[in-house]
C-alpha cells in the first residue's frame, strides 16, 4: 500500500547572520506497509519518526525539501495527490488531546473529520454515531470539550477521528505516550482491529515493547535512516540482523535491561560511514568509509555489512 524508498528530508535554516544551511534530518529512509498489516516504526526521539508521518501526509513546514520516492497504491505521492488524499485515504491519529481544538466539542470535531474525509453530508451524522458507539463512547461525550474528557476517552476520540472516514492507510503518531498499560493495550487493540478491517497501519512509537504487542513488522529508525525492518517474531526467535536492533531488544526490562551505550549522532554531525558506527561493537574500517545499503538478509531488509544470512 505504501512504499517509501530512499526518502531524505532536509530543512533550510538560517545559521549565524544570513548564511543558510541545510540540515538533513532524514537520510535514505525506507518503509513498506501492506494492507491488513501493522508496521511499527521504532526509534528514539530525533530519529525522524514523526517527520516521516508528516512527509507522507505532505504537511512538512515550507522550509523542508524532500527527495526519494513515496508510492501510495503503486503510484507516486505527489504534492497534489497528497493534498487530495490526506484525511481521505490517509489518516493521522495524533499524539495527544492537544491536537483537538480546545473550544470545540469533541463530537463536532469527529463530525469535522468525517466531512473532511469526504463522507456524504447526509451520512455524516450516522457515521459519527456509529463510530462513537463502536469505540464505546457515550453520546453525551459528544457535547464535551477536550479538557473534559478523561485520558482513556481522549485516546478513543482520537482513534475515532481517523476511523470515521474510510482511510486505507492510518498513521498513528506516538499514540501511547506515558499511558497506563491497560490503556496502551486498548489503544493498540484498536489499531489491530483497523488492520484486520483491511487497512494498513503505521504505528510510530519509541516503545519497542508496546510495538511488539501488536506489530507484524518493526522498522527500526536511527538518526533519520532505517537500520532494519524485522518481522515481529525475529525478536523472540533471536533472529535479529542489526546490532542496534539486538541492543534495543536486550535493553528491555524483561530481557537483560542493558542500555545501549552512547547517543544518537546530531543531524549536523553525522558520521561519513554507517550512522551507527560510533556505537557499534562490530565496527570495522569498512563501516567508517561507506554507508551500507539496504539488503535482504534472512528474508528482511537490513543496513549492515556484518549481517549474515
Amino acid at each position: 500500500m505504501l512504499t517509501v524508498q530512499n526518502l531524505s528530508v532536509s530543512f533550510t535554516q538560517y545559521d549565524t547572520g544570513l548564511t543558510q544551511k541545510q540540515l538533513t534530518v532524514i537520510t535514505d529512509l525506507d518503509l513498506h506497509v501492506n494492507a491488513r498489516e501493522v508496521v511499527a516504526v521504532v526509534g528514539s526521539s530525533g530519529s525522524g519518526k514523526s517527520l516521516l508521518a508528516h512527509a507522507v501526509l505532505g504537511i512538512l513546514p515550507h522550509n523542508a525539501q524532500i527527495s526519494g520516492t513515496i508510492l501510495f497504491k503503486g503510484e507516486p505521492l505527489t504534492r497534489q495527490r497528497q493534498a487530495s488524499l490526506r484525511g481521505k485515504a490517509i489518516a493521522l491519529i495524533p499524539q495527544s488531546i492537544s491536537y483537538l481544538d480546545p473550544l470545540m466539542p469533541v463530537g463536532r470535531q469527529v463530525h469535522q473529520a468525517a466531512r473532511r474525509a469526504g463522507v456524504a453530508t447526509t451520512d455524516i451524522r450516522q457515521r459519527v454515531d456509529h463510530t462513537f458507539s463502536r469505540y464505546e463512547l457515550a453520546s453525551t461525550v459528544k457535547q464535551q470539550y477536550p479538557f473534559q474528557v478523561s485520558g482513556g476517552m481522549a485516546r478513543r476520540v482520537l482513534v475515532a477521528t481517523a476511523a470515521v472516514g474510510q482511510a486505507d492507510l492510518i498513521i498513528a503518531d506516538e499514540p501511547t505516550p506515558g499511558l497506563h498499560p491497560d490503556l496502551v493495550a486498548e489503544t493498540l487493540n484498536h489499531l489491530r482491529q483497523l488492520a484486520s478491517a483491511g487497512k494498513g497501519v503505521i504505528l510510530i512509537t519509541h516503545d519497542l515493547e508496546a510495538a511488539l504487542q501488536v506489530a507484524d513488522k518493526v522498522a527500526v529508525f536511527y538518526a533519520g535512516t532505517t537500520l532494519e525492518i524485522a518481522i515481529a517474531e525475529d525478536f523472540v526467535n533471536g533472529n535479529l540482523r542489526h546490532p542496534y536492533t539486538q541492543a534495543l531488544w536486550r535493553s528491555l526490562p524483561q530481557n537483560e535491561f542493558i542500555p545501549v551505550p552512547g547517543a544518537q549522532p546530531n543531524p549536523d554531525a553525522l558520521p561519513d560511514g554507517c550512522l551507527f558506527s560510533d556505537r557499534c561493537p562490530l565496527v570495522t574500517d569498512a563501516c567508517l568509509t561507506e554507508r551500507p545499503s539496504l539488503r535482504l538478509v534472512r528474508g528482511a531488509p537490513v543496513r549492515c555489512i556484518h549481517a549474515e544470512g
Binding site: K88, A91, L92, P94, S98, L100, D101, A113, R116
Partner: peptide, 10 residues
C-alpha cells in the same frame, strides 16, 4: 497542534 491536525485531515 490542532491546526496541524486539521491540515493532516485535508
Amino acid at each position: 497542534n490542532y491546526a496541524l491536525f486539521a491540515r493532516a485531515q485535508g
